[in-house]
Amino acid sequence: MSRETLQESLSAVMDNQADELELRRVLAASDEPELRATWSRYQLARAVMHKELLEPRLDIAAAVSEALADDVAPVAQQVQRGSWRTVGRLAVAASVTVAVLAGVRFYNQDDITGAQLAQQSSQPVLNIPQVSGPAMLAGFNSSDEQAPPAASAVGQGQPGWHEQRLPSYLRQHAQQAAMSTSEGALPYARAASLEGR
């Protein structure tokens, strides 16, 4: 069985379009590191295109991170990775434009379950658990160095950039609200809840 056929099957499986034969083919080959790597890359591209937050605890995301960390050296890999990122960016831009044109309700997918998302977008969607807040909250700390892991959702180039800034932005936002208003306890409580204990 050729590599190409296998990748086609994999693609079909991920799009929920696979027949039983293809599914068996992919499952049989699922121990191969190469197939797993391809799977991971597809997964990342899909996540980018569908605007899903990659859940860092997921095996698949860990695999992607690992693969990306490992393949800095080879030039060919670099090119491939670059093109993936370009594709991803174009796809992001396109999907955002669509969302803006079509209205943002569709786009508020921060807490939509996989099933709802599938229903609304009429696209087959892999059932990836949506990250809303808890993953970030658990790791959230007022110290700028200990940054929320989920903030680097699709980040590759500079994983530290957002981690260094987002906590501070969040706190500045909350503190400005808490200090500039006389509207009672809520803005204060929000700001206080961002501080470590």
């Binding site: 807490d111 807040g133 903030a151 680097s152 699709v154 950039w161």
Partner: peptide, 11 residues
């Protein structure tokens, strides 16, 4: 600097 776009929700 090459930095990706991110989105996240905190409560």
């Amino acid at each position: 600097e090459a930095v990706e776009d991110v989105r996240t929700q905190l409560g």
